[in-house]
Design a protein around this nucleic acid. Structure first.
Length: 417
RNA sequence: GUGGAUGUAGCUCAGUUGGCAGAGCGCCAGAUUGUGGCUCUGGUUGUCGCGGGUUCGAGCCCCGUCAUCCACCCCA
């Protein structure tokens, strides 16, 4: 049911139980895996001065031109909600100085793009990303990709496919552009209207057009890499070879392109069949970002958490399995037991046990039902008789069997600390 | 930004040519005075997304608006 005039903005969602449990698992698996590769967490502001993004991502990109949430703050500064993580993280690392020239960091948090929502696309969405600074090195790229595939594996997500390609260096990009424009020119008539229009402006876009006519033309074109310098092709070959040595199968995909300007050399994408039209689970690449005259080089990736969750659910994961369960549930018969149970619950919780109880004085039956609903494996029932004896009835909910235990025994049994 | 579909109970959804607002599940209670799940019985739940219009009468028709879903563009 909607909450009237207070419903969330378009493309903004609440993440609540039970699915939030799956989110927590996805995040905690990432948090414990990245340190194995020497990556530490960094948390940067969600709001930045607009040029931080426009300069790094590229003035002409769609993300900057039509998808950023940009406005003037109270001091009249032009600010934007971050549309991706890399630009802000690089900005932050620069502020930290030269010690961070070889920084390895990861981040987890919300990003914002004012697009029309659809499957796997929100206006506020969430990314898990990493950045590894350093000069171009096929080994560094392969290590980064291998870590990412390791993470996918740790999530238990089968069926993810890694596609790799290269953008080459800046000189290659100009050569690719010019070469592609010439190669496509004889086939202009076979292209869709959209591709004809962008032939001169965004020739790379023709490569990933979904129109069948355009795909047929693209299949006849020389590979993009043929326009690049031999060194650039060798770089990609080396990345693929290193991945192979690490047991990570990579598929070189000549149609793969990336929309952000800062990419250079290796680019990649991980897709998953369970996702529908937006089938990219993650994207990454090597980049070179100029900030205030200094060039920062590095490699990194971003994974869409919403899409990871979708893929996991598509693979049969049930969110209910990730809901927290109490270790014990306390049931009270009468007002005195109800008061005593609250104190007992507190005592147990201080010693690390997850304890549930009903404080509203409902019937025993209703309290038992609540315990069952929350999946409590054990229930302790106390009334006046048990209070007087310092005992309680401990019930095994799966077996249905009940035994009388002292309160001391109960605490010893459920205390974890 | 463009195109299509949808919006009715907590959830999933019926609702005929415009004529009393429905089902299943859930929830609550009882069968069982202090014991859950299974069964049976009874009960509860509505701004029909919101705002206008047409009509004797609108959940249904018309206009607007908000949101959701799907696709395009683009991206994670």
């Amino acid at each position: 049911m909607s909450s009237g005039g207070f419903s969330p903005l378009q493309g903004m969602s609440d993440i609540a139980p039970p699915e939030v449990g799956l989110w927590q698992r996805v995040e905690s698996v990432a948090r414990s895996l990245f340190p194995l590769y020497g990556f530490e967490e960094i948390r940067t502001p969600i709001l930045e001065r607009t040029p931080v993004f426009t300069r790094a991502i590229g003035e002409g990109t769609d993300v900057v031109q039509k998808e950023m949430y940009t406005f003037d703050d109270r001091g009249g500064r032009q600010v934007s909600l971050r549309p991706e993580g890399t630009a802000g993280v690089i900005r932050a690392l620069c502020e930290l100085g030269p010690d961070f020239a070889e920084a390895r960091v990861f981040y987890i948090g919300p990003m914002f793009r004012a697009e029309r929502p659809q499957a796997g696309r929100k206006r506020q969405f969430h990314q898990i990303g990493v950045e590894a600074l350093g000069a171009p090195s096929p080994a560094a790229d392969a290590e980064c990709i291998a870590m990412q595939m390791h993470l996918v594996e740790q999530w238990g997500l089968g069926g993810a496919v890694l596609h790799v390609h290269t953008r080459g260096v800046a000189a290659d990009q100009a050569a690719v552009r010019a070469g592609l424009i010439e190669a496509v020119r004889p086939h202009l008539g076979a292209l869709c209207e959209e591709c004809r229009r962008r032939h001169e402006t965004h020739p790379l876009r023709i490569l990933d057009c979904k129109n069948p006519g355009c795909r047929a033309v693209v299949d006849t074109l020389p590979p993009v890499m043929s326009f690049m310098a031999p060194e650039s092709r060798a770089y990609l070959d080396e990345v693929v070879a290193r991945l192979g040595a690490l047991g990570v199968p990579a598929q070189v995909d000549p149609r793969l392109i990336r929309g952000l300007d800062y990419y250079e050399h290796t680019i990649w994408e991980i897709t998953h069949a369970a996702l529908g039209a937006q089938d990219a689970l993650a994207g990454g690449g090597r980049y070179r970002i100029d900030l205030d005259g200094r060039a920062v080089e590095g490699v990194g990736f971003a994974m869409g958490v919403e899409r990871v969750i979708m893929a996991l659910m598509g693979a049969g994961v049930k969110v209910e399995d990730y809901r927290g369960r109490p270790d014990l549930w306390l049931v009270a018969v009468g007002d005195r037991a109800r008061e005593e149970n609250l104190a007992l619950a507190q005592q147990l919780r201080r010693r690390g046990a997850a304890v549930g109880l009903d404080t509203s004085g409902r019937s025993v039956k209703a309290q038992m039902r609540a315990a069952n609903r929350r999946g409590a494996p054990w229930v302790a029932v106390r009334g006046d008789d048990e209070l007087a004896a310092g005992r309680c009835q401990l019930k095994d909910m799966a077996a249905g069997a009940e035994q009388s235990v002292t309160v001391g025994e109960l605490i010893a049994r459920f205390a974890k600390a």
